[in-house]
Amino acid sequence: MTPVAPVAHAPTRLVRGLILGSIGLVFAIPIVAMVEFTLRSGLAGGHDFSRWTALFQGGFAGPYRAVLVALGNSVGLAVGTVVLVLLLLVPTLLLVHLRFPRLRRLMEFVCILPISIPAIVLVVGLAPVYSVLGRLLGSGVWTLAFAYGITVLPFAYRAIQANLDGVDVRTLSEAARTLGAGWVSVLLRVLIPNLRRGILAGAFISVAVVLGEFTIASLLNRNTLQTSLVVVSKADPYTVVILSLLALTFAFLLLLVIGRLGTVRTGSRRRPTTGGQP
């Protein structure tokens, strides 16, 4: 088998290391500064772990217990938003791509439009809708998933559409239909596996946006992670930085698990080769 020649303009390993190192440094500097801030001993100088140990020994009791409740609300909202957006967006994109290609420009305009609307304007428009929604279904924090679905729609659309442009879904669907597969089987067993990378990327961005969103939750008076951190910061700025670091760690681990699920699923489909052939 002829080896594949390297790309002529691909960066060298040193250049890739410098780029990744520079990006990592940009992210690491504020995080290190946050850690150093939480370890300060005050006017006496020096550093210690007294604030960290006091927080964990107290078991997040008192005013900090609300942060755990808010974290659970944000995680539930992230899951609900991802499910809502993917259930609506993926079949619609496939339908437009296969059946109504002339509507692609209109679809792109509708999906990208929310990114140009400020969050406060979006809340003003959604307030009457939420008043009716509250009377019919209640005003629980879960209702934010509808507003968050609109917020993350542009990012999820671009991630999935970029993957969709690189896959010949028309040929795949026609081949599956020729072999006798129904449309449900074509969608679940042929098209979605080929769009897994774009779907996971859309889930990544959706989770990150939901966990970091503050404006919509604050204006609609919902208890989420970011709004609870603002409340805690008014009483103890050191503790709120510790909680922010823990929230960043949790979000990073959550995104790592989502990415790992896609990697494990891809690796499980590989089969051992025989006869020295790939």
Rank of each mutant, 00 (worst) to 15 (best):
L55H: 06
V152C: 03
V96E: 02
L126W: 08
S116Q: 01
V141L: 02
I120E: 11
L98C: 09
V82N: 14
Y64N: 12
P154I: 09
C111D: 04
N73W: 04
V69Y: 13
I120L: 14
A61V: 14
L77E: 04
V96P: 07
R102L: 08
A66Y: 01
Y148V: 11
A78S: 04
G149I: 05
L87M: 08
V110N: 07
G80V: 07
V96R: 05
H47R: 15
L98Q: 14
L153H: 04
R158K: 04
L88Q: 03
V75N: 05
G140Y: 14
P128D: 01
Y64A: 12
F146T: 08
C111F: 07
G45T: 03
Q57T: 09
S131A: 12
P63I: 01
G125Q: 00
F155G: 02
A147F: 12
N73D: 05
H47L: 15
Q161M: 11
C111K: 00
R158G: 03
R99A: 09
L43R: 07
Y130R: 01
V67P: 08
I112V: 10
G45K: 08
M107G: 04
Y157C: 06
S139H: 13
S41F: 00
L94V: 10
G58F: 00
T92Y: 11
A119Q: 10
S74M: 02
G58L: 03
V35N: 01
P101A: 04
L137W: 15
C111Q: 05
C111E: 03
V83A: 12
L98N: 08
V90A: 04
F49I: 11
F37Y: 14
L93G: 01
